[in-house]
């Protein structure tokens, strides 16, 4: 538990900053909704007729005049990109930063096994992802209540559950990569999250790129699909969970026998 506690303590500041930034953007979006609602009659049809742009963001399937539709696009993107980046960074820096800052030597010459270090570090990263999402959910609910709007309960829960799993998957995959690299973790982490995000946009735009939905976790966390189907694609999410497990297992195998550089 010592490693876990230390990880949490060291990342607390970053977690607070990310939570506040994402939370604030979502609160601003929701606070604007009542004013936008009246204008979306026109905007809705406009957004629905922007060709592939419309497809990419799933705006053909959503009603901008409804809180859920608005929330799915605006907040979905904020939490999708922001939360995805945070999760990938938390995962990628877990092991790589120890080597980059040469602290792995300090940590690993104490009587802790590498397996235990990895379990504690991954758990800490996932805890941070969960905290960030919980904070966002609370911010959303509070703001919606403040402006007198309410969410469709089931859809709200499904969207956030899917986002949480999506971010956990990114975190686990990044953690797997983390075991291989010694430096440059920041770029790889952000790159991973953004690449996955754009894969989903491509996948929405072109049927040729549909196979990408099995690669990117953003596919099963697509709010437009969740809201229009009133359900999450369980098969895609199961594939995602397998990829996450593969990431974590890869880390365990690689880091277990890795030579720690001086």
């Amino acid at each position: 538990m010592t490693v876990y506690a230390n990880e949490m303590k060291r990342s607390l500041k970053a977690l607070i900053i990310w939570s506040l930034a994402i939370g604030a953007m979502i609160m601003i979006c929701i606070a604007m909704f009542p004013d936008l609602k009246n204008e979306t009659e026109k905007m809705g049809s406009m957004f629905a007729n922007m060709g592939s742009f419309t497809d990419a963001f799933g705006m053909d399937k959503l009603d901008f005049g409804q809180l859920m539709g608005f929330y799915g696009i605006e907040c979905g993107n904020v939490l999708g990109i922001g939360g995805g980046m945070f999760a990938a960074l938390a995962g990628i820096s877990a092991l790589a930063n120890e080597e980059k800052e040469h602290t792995a030597e300090f940590l690993l010459t104490h009587p802790v096994s590498r397996a235990s270090v990895m379990i504690q570090k991954l758990t800490a990263a996932l805890t941070q992802v969960a905290v960030l999402n919980m904070f966002t959910v609370c911010a959303s609910l509070a703001t919606a209540a403040a402006v007198g709007e309410s969410f469709d309960k089931k859809q709200f829960v499904l969207i956030h559950a899917a986002f949480l799993v999506m971010q956990a998957e990114l975190c686990c995959i990044a953690f797997g990569i983390s075991a291989f690299i010694k430096r440059g973790s920041l770029g790889i982490g952000l790159g991973l999250a953004l690449a996955m995000y754009f894969m989903n946009l491509l996948c929405n735009m072109s049927s040729d790129a549909e196979f990408l939905k099995y690669v990117t976790p953003y596919a099963y966390a697509e709010p437009s699909d969740i809201i229009s189907e009133n359900a999450v694609d369980g098969a895609l999410m199961a594939v995602g969970c397998c990829l996450a497990a593969a990431g974590a297992v890869t880390a365990f195998i690689k880091y277990g026998k890795k030579d720690i550089s001086a």
Binding site: N6, R10, E101, H102, T103, E105, F106, T109, H110, P111, A262
Partner: peptide, 14 residues
């Protein structure tokens, strides 16, 4: 490792 005290040539901490 429980019974060893190690001092590396370069001291790096968090």
């Amino acid at each position: 490792l429980a019974d060893i005290g190690y001092m590396p040539s370069e001291a790096n901490f968090y």
